[in-house]
Design a protein around this nucleic acid. Structure first.
Length: 660
RNA sequence: GCCGCCUUAGCUCAGUUGGCCAGAGCGACGCACUCGUAAUGCGUAGGUCAAGGGUUCGAUUCCCUUAGGCGGCUCCA
């Protein structure tokens, strides 16, 4: 028996060389450490059953690491598929990869799963976990695999696609890698009997018993291989975690996210609604939401003015010809509201974008290089015909208002202007309370673009440099650009760590050409300007929703619809408070007095639930002293504050735009 | 657009295995209570059980269609 020399890497620091006998498995190297679920050998993930070879560098993969979690979730997906096929023997397997926080598996079944079915499947999964079946890897030839999986038409299709798995379908590479095919057998730990098998690249947990905590979340249809031309399979989503505590933490997170749902808070706080009578995706703002929105807009307006933007207004509808010129009717007609015929057969459209109209403003007269960069800004309301299944509260609406700007500049000004714009955008977002960003650089889609390669390269490089200058993480998004130019998008993380796509800064090589935009250069020649599209909130409605969720409805005082509520202990204190409120209003503060017949405890409860930043409470003591008492949202209080100081404190919180 | 689930009072939800006047809490309104930090008590009003069609002696309940919502998929200039 010959010896095998391996190097065990615990982390980048610690290395251990060890001599073991031939046939030693990775599991044996890490024996005793139950949190190790796989091994990385020379950069490749392997099952713990892998027999180490001479010269291998072997690294343990912990269940809590990113790879470890993926393996856990992938294996749990297998357990689910096994459970499904035990309960629904006719179910055909699609694909079942790990995803963020969980996994899914697609099945072709006669009848879609009912929520009750998920409970049964979950129970069956628990049995399988308890049985402790071994995951056992076995290499097979393509032909052998075809024979074994003759009853699994979707797996057969994947075998045929081997090697191009990356394009086959998202997640398909989890089933078939680029190399040889493998099948994982689930074996009974005692008898070694085959319980189930699946075509899979692996690796997997050594045993189903290792699955510590999981839950099935929901079922939904999904197109086979992600194309709407294909049949819809039934997808079941689940989540799996290294411990029950982590599962609970995740479920708690979902509960918290649900509490913050802007659709729910919007109704609770009386901010907006989406009346059925108006139509799906078309919102109305109630007075309280109207205040928040107006303050958001006013502040943005002021900052834009300071930054050299000029304000324009354009109509909501236009003759179709404009969108022929812009090309929107060629590219995006599906996403536009259908035309209305006016004036004997002329088609008018609701506008889905503001840029063509801004171009007409640019083109209204001859432009000089002295005017550039020309920055046109508008809160421009646009209408897009979103498909019925995608409309979602304020974040995906059919009518919404963009804080839209188009910057026309010379090619020489482009880099500087982009830099300025991005800095401005990020700082303004920070003013609204978002602080955690990363940037995404969307580059050319080789299938879908206009303009020369040179100009794309130059522009992309400029964007990259500008983005890097911000010192924020920069994530590439190859092929993600619109056909007319590359873009940077700003992604912001909210208070509970969710990422939202916010602003975009986008170059456009298409529209200046189509609209034949020109300016006169210093040498008297006509030149084409560069055009930058830039939306900061994206849509005001959407940004409103993001802030609402970010703050969980508890807006900082400057945005809060009501900044302070006066709560009298008894009727005798109402007029004193009304006086106080009137004084505060003179300073531009939004202060109300709750003079209802409720008891003061009830008023406090109501104020608390409406998430007012300041409660101003007054009884005999404060009235006699000419003071008021504050109660803050966290329940803490500050008593006996002189009236002037109280107003000054509220005013300062508003002025500084801080959370209280 | 596709698939599934859902729609009972302003809101949150009971309920009817097809049968007399469809219930509760909160909210609204009224009366009483005048109170120092998260719900005072009593009372009143409020529903074509989403809309339309069908089956049936009888439909809120079963079936179909439509609208809207929710969760996914596809899409998102």
């Amino acid at each position: 028996m010959s010896d095998v020399r391996v190097i065990i890497k615990r982390d980048s620091e610690e290395q251990e060389e060890r001599l073991v006998t031939t046939g030693t498995t990775a599991a044996e190297l890490f024996d005793g450490d139950r949190t190790v679920v796989a091994a990385r050998v020379g950069g490749q993930l392997k099952d713990l059953a892998y027999e180490v070879a001479d010269g291998d560098e072997v690294e343990p993969v912990g269940i809590a690491s990113e790879d470890g979690l993926n393996i856990l979730r992938h294996s749990t997906a297998h357990v689910m598929a096994q459970a499904v096929q035990e309960l629904f023997p006719e179910a055909k397997l699609g694909i079942g990869p790990p995803i963020k926080d969980g996994f899914y598996y697609d099945f072709d079944v006669e009848k879609p799963f009912h929520p009750d079915d998920l409970k049964r499947i979950e129970k069956k999964m628990q049995e399988i976990v308890k049985r402790g079946q071994r995951f056992s890897r076995r290499a097979v030839s393509d032909d052998a695999a075809r024979e074994e999986l003759a009853d699994e038409p979707y797996k057969l299709e994947l075998i045929g696609l081997k090697g191009s798995a990356a394009e086959a379908a998202e997640g398909a590479s989890a089933e078939v890698g680029a190399g040889e095919l493998t099948i994982y057998d689930n074996l009974d730990p005692k008898t070694g009997e085959l319980c189930w098998k699946d075509l899979c690249r692996g690796p997997h947990l050594p045993s189903t018993r290792i699955v510590p905590a999981f839950k099935l979340m929901r079922s939904a249809a999904a197109y086979w291989r992600g194309s709407e031309k294909n049949k819809q399979l039934q997808r079941i989503y689940g989540t799996a975690w290294p411990s029950r505590d982590e599962l609970k933490e995740y479920l708690d997170f979902l509960v918290e996210a649900e509490k913050r749902d802007h659709r729910k808070l919007g109704a609770e706080l009386d901010l907006f609604s989406i009346p059925e009578q108006i139509g799906s995706g078309l919102a109305v703002f109630h007075p309280k939401g109207g205040i928040v929105r107006r303050v958001m807009e006013d502040y943005s307006r002021r900052r834009h003015e300071e930054e050299g933007y000029e304000f324009v207004y354009t109509p909501h509808a236009t003759k179709g010809k404009l969108f022929e010129t812009s090309g929107h009717l060629d590219w995006y007609a599906d996403g536009m509201y259908p035309p209305m015929q006016l004036d004997e057969g002329v088609d008018y459209y609701l506008k889905p974008m503001n840029c063509p109209m801004h171009n007409l403003i640019f083109d209204a007269r001859g432009r000089s290089y002295r005017e550039l960069p020309l920055r046109l800004f508008e809160f421009g309301t646009v209408y897009r015909y979103e498909k019925s299944g995608v409309v979602h509260g304020l974040t995906r609406a059919r009518g919404f208002t963009q804080d839209d700007a188009h910057i026309y500049c010379t090619k020489e000004q482009m880099a500087d202007e982009l830099d300025k714009t991005l800095t401005f955008v990020l700082n303004l977002l920070r003013d609204y309370g978002l602080t955690d960003f990363y940037l995404e650089l969307s580059t050319k889609d080789p299938e879908k673009f206009v303009g020369s390669d040179e100009i794309w390269e130059e522009a992309t490089e400029t964007l990259r440099q500008v983005a890097e200058k911000q010192g924020l993480p920069l994530v590439p998004d190859p092929g993600g650009a619109a056909f007319y130019g590359p873009k940077i998008s700003v992604q912001a993380k909210d208070a509970i760590g969710r990422t939202w796509q916010m602003s975009t800064v986008q170059l456009d090589f298409n529209l200046p050409e189509r609209f034949d935009l020109e300016y006169t250069a210093a040498d008297g020649t006509k030149q084409r300007p560069v055009m930058i599209h830039r939306a900061l909130f994206g849509s005001i409605e959407r940004f409103f929703a993001v802030l609402l969720e970010h703050y969980a409805g508890a807006f900082p005082a400057w945005l809060a619809p009501v900044q302070a509520v006066g709560i009298p202990i008894g009727d005798a204190h109402v007029s004193y408070l009304q006086d106080f409120a009137a004084e505060a209003r003179k300073k531009g503060l939004r202060v109300e007095v709750d003079a209802s017949a409720d008891r003061m405890q009830k008023k406090i409860r109501n104020a608390q639930r409406s998430k007012v930043p300041f409660m101003v409470i007054v009884g005999d003591e404060d009235m006699a002293a000419g003071s008021v008492s504050f109660r803050y949202r966290d329940g803490s209080q500050k008593n006996g504050i002189p009236r002037d100081e109280a107003i000054a404190e509220i005013a300062k919180a508003v002025e500084d735009r801080v959370q209280v």
